[in-house]
């Protein structure tokens, strides 16, 4: 096990005393198989217990340790030290307000996520005695990749349109809406369209594609959003040019 001395630059912000954030550098003896999160934990345990950051699972499942590592949105638990030089700069996720140090305010995302109703809305309620809602493997595969989203918000940190227009509902929330819209058991698309086909919905997306490039779970939000645009456009033309087609 080789050890390397890493200069870890951490963006610090204390809302009680600071008027703006500043970088603080820690010299961390890192093992080569460590991830950035290990380095931060080392700092917290040995050098400076005041550093604040979120983490939980250390295995790219919980989605809470998202941060900017050398300017790129990353899960700190999935950013391996050996992929970086001797100087690593960590900052809170871009496009989100800083609560303290590496902790961001995520209320905006949580609100938007809830607004798209990311849960099954069955076409018709049936009693348990009527049996299960069946789904074939083909139907499952249609939306399976979108179920892998862990709400880590890296896509929001990568999306310039979200940075420029904070009202934009954004990649993950619209992808999850798409995931349920595509689900053969679901009947809630009309309700979700009210939100995602609105002005601040999918139409703020200009297909930069950064969301899909940074996603740690290889979900493809950019694809979901383009599919939503195509479907919403077909809806619009059906509704306005062929009103008799409306159900």
């Amino acid at each position: 096990m080789s050890e390397r001395q890493i200069q870890l630059e951490v963006l610090r912000y204390n809302p009680e005393t600071d008027s703006e954030p500043r970088f603080q550098t820690y010299s961390v003896p890192c093992l080569n198989e460590w991830v950035v999160l290990d380095a931060l934990n080392y700092v917290k345990d040995n050098l400076d217990p005041t550093v604040s950051y979120r983490w939980s699972c250390h295995m790219a499942v919980c989605g809470s340790c998202g941060m900017m590592v050398n300017g790129e949105p990353k899960l700190a638990c999935k950013a391996f030290i050996h992929e970086y030089g001797d100087q690593i700069r960590v900052e809170p996720l871009a496009n989100f307000p800083i609560e303290r140090d590496l902790v961001t305010v995520v209320d905006d995302f949580i609100g938007k996520l809830a607004s798209v109703k990311p849960y099954l809305i069955p076409k018709e309620d049936k009693p348990v005695s009527a049996g299960e809602y069946k789904q074939s493997p083909v139907e499952l595969k249609t939306f399976k990749q979108y179920t892998l989203c862990i709400n880590c918000m890296l896509c929001y940190a990568a999306c310039p349109q979200y940075g420029l227009v904070p009202e934009f509902i954004g990649p993950a929330a619209i992808s999850l809406a798409h995931r349920y819209n595509q689900d053969s058991r679901d009947g809630g698309r009309e309700q979700r369209q009210e939100v995602i086909a609105s002005h601040d919905g999918v139409w703020e997306c200009s297909f930069v594609g950064a969301c899909s490039e940074v996603c740690p779970k290889h979900v493809d939000p950019a694809s979901a959003l383009q599919q939503v645009k195509v479907a919403s456009t077909i809806d619009w033309y059906k509704e306005h040019l062929m009103p008799w087609m409306k159900k």
Partner: peptide, 17 residues
């Protein structure tokens, strides 16, 4: 909660085509 659906599709259709 009823937010107006956007009329962007009018121009997005020709944009994509």
């Amino acid at each position: 909660m009823t937010v107006a659906k956007s009329n962007k599709p009018i121009v997005w259709g020709p944009f994509a085509a």
